[in-house]
Amino acid sequence: MSFNLVEVNNLTFTYRDEKQPALEKVSFALPAGSWTAVVGPNGSGKSTLTRLLDGLLWPDSKHSEIKIAGERLTKQNVWSVRQQIGIVFQNPDNQFVGATVADDVAFGLENQNFPPEKMQERIEQALAAVKMQDYAGTEPSRLSGGQKQRVALAGITALRPKLLILDEATAMLDPQGRRDVIALIQQLRQDYQLTVLSVTHDADEAALADQVLVLSHGKVKATGTPADLFSQPDLIASLGLKPPFVMDLKQRLAAKGIEVPAEITEEQDLVNYLCQLSSTK
């Protein structure tokens, strides 16, 4: 696919009462069907970028341009453009509106004035797509974080958007939940031809992307494939980006004189190894 679903030109945004712009002259494009990871240290403007794309914030000047599916985002068309975008936020609890799983998936449909008689079918379909069909009547307090994020994804796929934005959607999940959600997103992306923009601190997640956009102090510092990026350890370190956790810990242990065998690459194996290490001493 050759056309760009999202085109951003010269995007500048300053929060009220701040002198430094949160984003400065940012330009990039997301080819339709691609997966783009946005990485960068805290305060580099990553979340601001997602909010601008969805029209939740507005750029400083008329020279900034955001185009979604060829249409320029304005205050007049923001609600129709927003229908093409789904966002999964960081905190699973703070985006769960419904009192049950089914009610939460229904919330977006209700907002679009979706015909009630067709709603049940849509909801069941969406829940099946995220493998949560057995939980339709469950209350959010009985779900794990990963399950809540899956419900959030169901709520989005039920609306059939073109662009899926993940705003650190896996940051608050345990490793297993994180893996499940990422695998699910890859599946949904294929099934629904989604373009994915994922804001992340997780190196493993960024490694899945087609292209990586590096933000620093509100500017695009680098773009490239994950392979390009991760072959520059200095760049990664300068961004405050966490390298994959197990690698990081092994390096630090080695610096203290504790050599961990190379075949240990999983977190759980490392935990077991370290537990045995201290108990044998």
């Binding site: 909010r51 969805d54 939740l56 609600w79 927003r82 229908q83 975008i85 789904g86 966002i87 936020f89 703070n94 985006q95 509106v97 089914a102 009610d103 229904a106 919330f107 977006g108 449909l109 209700e110 907002n111 679009q112 004035n113 979706f114 015909p115 009630p116 709603m119 049940q120 909801i123 709520g155 609306l159």
Partner: peptide
Amino acid sequence: LSIAMEARGYQDDKPRSRY
């Protein structure tokens, strides 16, 4: 929550259907 609701298309002055 208010940001999430807006992102999911909630407008308080528009008619909404009911599940």
